[in-house]
Design a protein around this nucleic acid. Structure first.
Length: 672
DNA sequence: CATGGGTGTCATGGT
DNA sequence: TGACCATGACACCCA
């Protein structure tokens, strides 16, 4: 750090603008600092002039010359309250909430008010989807939009800002793009759809915190289903995703960059495929690290023509193609390159790990910001330290600095592994032949997933240099299939080079796939463990409940028995009456039906015995004798034992009768 | 030296 | 048919 003191740093917050907008929205809702009242259809809305003027040409025109504090603007008749309210909300939140019913209304209002970044970009996408049959001409419109508005606006600054200015060389980046053949620029825009738009498209999946790998593998989905984890969330179902996203997902809530609008419209005009739509709408499930503007550059222009690509590819670790790649100092500033809606720095790209993990897309903006700043760290340090002559000590310092960052154990700091790997790779740059030295570095540090990869890639890079590959290994790996094949067509490679390139690509893809597979497996194990724990606790709970219910049932039966005994004793039932009573109370669930049946059965066996039993229950005179009480208790005991012996509750009289027969000797015992 | 975890690579099957 | 992906199996490295 001491050596970095002379350097000038740039901290760019990717959450600041969001925070400001949110605060403004809160102020609007609390009517704080609002300086304009808007009236539409007898409804008034409070707002901030500056916000409205920033979003709408209409408001910009009407309010810039007004300084009075209590400005009231009556909106045109075409602007309805229903259509304007979502627009006002959009101005403060970047999110446009609409339904199929009011989308036309909103569209109309947006057109009248000249809402920037919304009109063409948003509605040209939405309306054909909603009103497909009636809006068949939208494609033409969108084409027009692309050519007039977006390219024109792009010339102003936006595209340069995104791609070229960030590298400090605007002309070199934009000119080649403009010189592309028409189909190339079409591809370019298509690629940009994949690169820029997904981040700006709001889907429910964006809010998820975990990558749903099930979306990647049908087998895994089946496994999850087999595990009882029915993936009910349609967002996790690729099929559903592809089928519904193009309609359900908002195509764009805020197009800050015109090229995004252009690419979206262009994509519509050229016909969005289901796959593209899925990619467009669901970056989490489809996003691939290879889909970045940088790759866009590298794919559509030669590596030599795109400085970003040059800086992205190993930071010059390979034999430099003419012109030589940028030095580390040229990318030191960590210029933000818009990738997936968050800010990725060139240093991210330089590591060849542009959003290497799909999860990166899902991180919170705060996480992203910290990760980006941290990932830019080695670049920053490079600016002050990394003279090849002092590489040994310099690299040691950087590695140690990375170690304490790693020790923060923030989940998103795993990208530091990539940074770390990049640090090492840049070391390889200076010492491509000194594999032993690299190994010593690795052995002295925490081995993370990128260590071995770093080794692998460094050796691959060496092989690439041996066969004089005209492009970087990173390019081989990170390009999309089409770009890769196109590159192979443009480059005349020998058979050896071709085999090497395919081999490297295959192994790299498989390496990533293996990581995903292992990650999924671990996640699955974790989920199963959680499921086991949950089921276990549920079982314990149910067992305790059953125990309680059993006790309650026993207690209830005993109460019934006591009640029966008292009833018999007080009613002085005759054996015939007992039999009738038993007949009408011999329901399966009647707790003393057994008791009654027993006694009724006794009647059949021995009338004399029943007489005796009757005498036990009560004599003919109806006098309740003290001895009767004792015998009644004995009878109760017999009934209780019957009840216990007949659990579970018997369902028919036959069982009752057999039991009664078995018990028939007991009164005799009692009698004796 | 054995062991377990992590990783890359290959082979294979499915898409 | 080729490319891609998932995954089991194996080998290697390292703590």
């Amino acid at each position: 750090m001491s050596s970095c003191k002379t350097s000038e740093f740039t901290f760019q917050s990717s959450v600041h603008s969001t925070h400001v907008l949110r605060c403004l929205d809160e102020q609007r809702q609390k009517d704080l600092l609002c300086d304009v009242t808007l009236v539409a259809e007898n409804r008034s809305f409070r707002a901030h002039r500056s916000v409205l003027a920033s979003c709408s040409e209409y408001f910009s025109t009407r309010m810039t010359n007004h300084t009075s504090p209590g400005l009231i603007i009556n909106l045109p008749d075409e602007v309805t309250a229903e259509g304007f309210e979502p627009l006002l909300q959009f101005a403060y939140t970047s999110k446009l909430l609409f339904t199929k019913e009011n989308v036309l209304e909103i569209h109309n209002c947006a057109t009248v008010l000249g809402f920037k970044n919304l009109d063409k970009a948003c509605f040209d996408f939405i309306l054909p989807k909603f009103f497909d049959s009636s809006k068949g001409s939208s494609k033409v419109q969108s084409n027009q939009c692309c050519k007039t508005k977006c390219w024109g606006a792009k010339d102003k600054s936006s595209f340069k800002n995104d791609c070229a200015n960030d590298t400090g060389d605007a002309s070199s980046a934009t000119q080649p793009l403009k010189k592309q053949e028409p189909n190339i620029s079409s591809n370019l825009s298509e690629k940009a759809v994949r690169t820029c738009s997904p981040c700006q498209v709001e889907t429910e999946a964006d809010t998820e915190t975990e990558t749903d790998y099930s979306a990647l593998c049908p087998k895994y989905r089946k496994f999850q289903l087999a595990c009882g984890k029915g993936l009910s969330n349609p967002d996790t179902e690729p099929e559903n995703t592809e089928n519904t996203c193009s309609l359900n997902c908002l195509p764009c809530s805020s197009f800050e960059k015109c090229e995004s609008a252009y690419t979206l419209s262009s994509k519509i005009s050229t016909g969005i495929t289901e796959e593209d739509a899925a990619f467009f709408c669901c970056p989490l499930t489809k996003h691939s690290p290879i889909e970045t503007p940088l790759n866009l550059c590298s794919g559509k222009t030669s590596p030599q023509m795109c400085p970003v690509t040059a800086s992205c590819s190993l930071g010059g670790s390979l034999p430099p193609p003419p012109p030589p790649p940028l030095s580390a100092g040229e990318v030191v500033e960590g210029f933000p390159v818009r990738v997936t809606g968050e800010e990725c720095t060139v240093s991210d790209c330089k590591t060849g790990s542009i959003c290497p993990n799909p999860r990166k897309v899902q991180r919170s903006s705060v996480e992203m910001e910290v990760a980006n700043q941290l990932s830019a760290w080695p670049d920053i340090c490079n600016s002050g330290v990394s003279e090849p002559s002092s590489h040994g000590q310099g690299m040691a310092v950087k590695s140690s600095e990375l170690q304490w960052l790693k020790q923060l154990e923030c989940p998103f700091l795993r990208d530091l592994g990539a940074v770390d790997a990049q640090v090492r790779r840049s070391e390889v740059t200076s010492h491509a032949a000194e594999c032993s030295y690299i190994s010593s570095i690795h052995s002295g540090e925490d081995s993370d997933s990128f260590d071995t990869e770093g080794d692998s890639e460094s050796c691959t890079s060496e092989q690439a240099s041996l066969i004089q590959l005209p492009f970087s290994v990173e390019g081989i790996v990170s390009l999309s299939r089409n770009d890769f094949q196109q590159m192979l067509k443009t480059q005349r490679l020998t058979r050896e080079q071709l085999e090497f390139v395919h081999d490297v690509r295959r192994r790299s893809k498989n390496r990533v796939a293996a990581r995903r597979c292992r990650k999924r497996k671990l996640d699955c194990i974790h989920n199963l463990e959680c499921e086991i724990e949950r089921l276990r606790s549920e079982k314990e709970k149910l067992t305790a409940e059953k125990r309680q219910l059993d006790q309650l049932r026993l207690k209830t039966k005993e109460n019934y028995s006591v009640l029966y005994d008292r009833l018999c004793a007080e009613a002085k039932l005759q054996p015939e009456q007992l039999q009738v009573f038993a007949k009408y109370t011999s329901l399966a669930e009647c707790p003393f039906s057994t008791h009654l049946s027993t006694k009724a059965q006794l009647y059949h066996h021995s009338r004399a015995e029943l007489q005796l039993l009757a005498s036990c229950l009560g004599n003919d005179t109806g006098i309740y004798e003290p001895g009767t009480s004792t015998r009644s208790v004995n009878t109760h005991s017999l009934a209780a034992s019957n009840l216990r012996s007949t659990e579970p509750p018997h369902t028919g009289n036959s069982e009752t009768m057999s039991i009664s027969t078995d018990q028939s000797s007991k009164p005799e015992t009692d009698k004796s």
